[in-house]
Design a protein around this nucleic acid. Structure first.
Lengths: 394, 394
DNA sequence: GCCAAATTTGAATCGATAG
DNA sequence: ACTATCGATTCAAATTTGG
């Protein structure tokens, strides 16, 4: 349970709902600056075509699964399973589903920034079509991610394995897009300092989180858990980023985006879903900046030159550096290079040379003698960074 | 360890190796009764075309994955990863891979009995192509099954999630094939009387099971674990059934089939792989008829990430954690890290930092306020474990 | 011989930047 | 588009080496 704090009740005035004309048929034009924190009622391809190219940082899509249910399914006690039988999940054949998929993925790709990524969730009914078309359109798959459900619906007929997972495909806009957002360090720190895997274990959406009408019927048949979206947004976006969800449904993406201080655009063709999403998001309290700011990573830390350690005397010119087991050693020169026999070069080059390797991280490899023990030169780099931060008033 | 029993040492006289003419180009004809317990050296499409239609009970296929590796990958210690760079995994583009896939799947479909099923394993590189083509050819997908690896290769660059699983697609010959084999009760009985799920946790193939040459080099780059094949054969075939593997490789399918008293046909185009498979299978001791039952693995999967407690709201992002005597405190961030002043890191790292210690068990150290009192976060971890066990039906 | 420590390895579409 | 440089990056399990 989340409790309200001071300021919690302020309304999200920035939430807008844009409506297409009745019928919601194709209607291009628009292409101003992309709206932020908006729900658009309309067809997703037409509405994406109205957004400016290269404007969103992340796409999360939960498209129709193209379930092929021919008969009603009943439980062993003869009660009826409330299956997905909505019009939006009816496709005549694979060709039609493929054409639909190609259209919305192409539209999504246009509005993605060059370094944006896309996450599409699906089941075996549709995910192979989606994955193939993603590849055909030039997307570059980064991972397929398995959402393992702690509490899946059992297989009542006993003719298959319990369908206990869904699959997400995470893809960059293209093979050359190397600068995509992946908050590796944050995910690792949140996972007992162990790198995050491609299989995620999470419960399905139930209980108080599941939207229901007054009669207790679920508002949307495939509402995704907020925990799933939270992990997606934390992994592949930063605070302030713009997240597009072309199949907004009950608005889980918007609710989590607002809580994590991302902006969102949700496109939904059913006005009643859009209304439910709007009310839901309005009740969300964004987290404090501090709770969602990007964790600093080693990648974006201040660079320290080994030469500056020598200049300041932290490591003395003329002393010797060793590897952790004293199998190799080298001489520190006044200009911040090392000498090993006739060879002179950077801490990395000489580290690689003495080991006969193509490369080496000299910061991790070399140590100096302090009080009889060996101390990694990386310790002195960390000290230098700390004093730099202090000097900067942090 | 399997011990030899009376009659155990009889040689598998029925193992035959059939060879195509040199070059192994297309060579139809044949179509007598299907061979049993045979390894055929040749191209899989041509060799399948020589088998009679409707003759096999199960197809297991581990086709080339179409990896598209451009550069060498080295570990942090500069050792080189032995990547798959074999000729059989070279395709110029997706179109060529698709044509190849369509050809072998169509050939396999012809030789399947009406109620036969097929299992194809792959990774995100190829599985979406395979799944789409299966559907296009009229196969009816029954499940996608996730093989979760207990010991996957880590992601060395920190740019993606650890690729910790592979995907199998299990499909019937067509939508109308209702009489396929699925040993539901056996799987359930072997799984603590709990329905078998679509996610399987198994180690990769290492140790004594991994075939190696005299120099210690692995015989085949992608040898699958026998436990995986055993579960497939137990689930989708019966003793005496004929199992076809068109990409036989090191012969895992044949070895497990022989042990579980199924017959097999293995097609392999590389004579040296076929020879290794033949020797391997000859050493396998078939189980007693009654012993052909299930040995399920339920491994400890108790690891709970602090991030998952935050995602599910058990611990709220934005709240504060304290040590038992409230001498230290930190802020819970949405990604499951803690913030103490400017420092951000895991529960362990920040616990160590605030105490000025080199290490700290964050689970034991940190507490949250609940009803005015402090509760150890380890209590919530224990709760999460308990509900996991419950969800697993234990 | 036994236990501890060190080493090896696995289907991988795995950098950024300056010049 | 290319090269050279800097320096960032790993988990589980089996096997080998050392004490």
């Amino acid at each position: 349970m989340r409790t309200l704090r001071a300021g919690a009740s302020r309304l999200p005035a920035q939430i807008q709902v844009v409506r297409t004309g009745a019928g919601g048929t194709t209607r291009p034009a628009a292409i101003g600056p992309a709206p932020r924190d908006a729900i658009v009622v309309g067809e997703c391809v037409a509405e994406m075509d109205r957004l400016p190219a290269g404007s969103v940082d992340l796409v999360f899509a939960d498209p129709p699964y193209n379930l092929q249910l021919e008969n009603a399914l009943s439980r062993p006690d003869q009660s009826l399973v409330d299956a997905v039988d909505d019009d939006w999940d009816k496709f005549v054949d694979f060709a039609e589903y493929d054409a639909f998929t190609r259209a919305w993925l192409a539209a999504a790709r246009r509005v993605m920034k060059p370094n944006a990524t896309i996450v599409v969730i699906g089941s075996y009914h549709n995910i192979f079509r989606v994955g193939s078309i993603l590849q055909d359109l030039g997307f570059w798959i980064l991972n397929d991610i398995v959402w393992r459900k702690t509490n899946p619906m059992p297989n009542f007929r006993g003719r298959r394995f319990t369908n206990a997972h869904e699959t997400m495909i995470w893809a960059a806009r293209g093979q050359d897009a190397k600068g995509y957002t992946f908050n590796y360090e944050a995910l690792k720190a949140g996972n007992d300092d162990c790198q995050a895997r491609s299989d995620w274990l999470l419960p399905i959406c139930t209980g108080g989180e599941r939207l229901k009408d007054k009669a207790g019927r679920k508002t949307h048949p495939t509402q995704k858990p907020e925990a799933l979206l939270a992990r997606v947004l934390i992994a592949a976006s930063n605070a302030g980023d713009l997240v597009l969800d072309p199949f907004f449904g009950s608005g889980t993406t918007g609710a989590v985006a607002r809580r994590l201080r991302r902006s969102y655009i949700g496109i939904e063709r059913d006005p009643s879903y859009a209304a439910a999403a709007r009310a839901r998001i309005a009740a969300v309290e964004p987290l404090d900046d501090e709770a969602v700011a990007i964790a600093p990573t080693r990648r974006n830390e201040q660079r320290i030159a080994f030469a500056s350690l020598v200049e300041t005397g932290v490591v003395a010119a003329g002393e010797r550096v060793f590897d952790a087991r004293r199998r190799h050693c080298a001489l520190v020169r006044a200009d911040g290079t090392l000498a090993a026999g006739p060879a002179i070069g950077s801490i990395h080059k000489i580290g690689a040379l003495v080991q006969g390797l193509p490369a080496c991280n000299g910061w991790a490899f070399w140590h100096v003698e302090r009080g009889g023990d060996l101390t990694s030169i990386d310790v002195f780099r960390a000290d230098a960074r700390a004093s730099l931060r202090e000097a900067a008033g942090l």
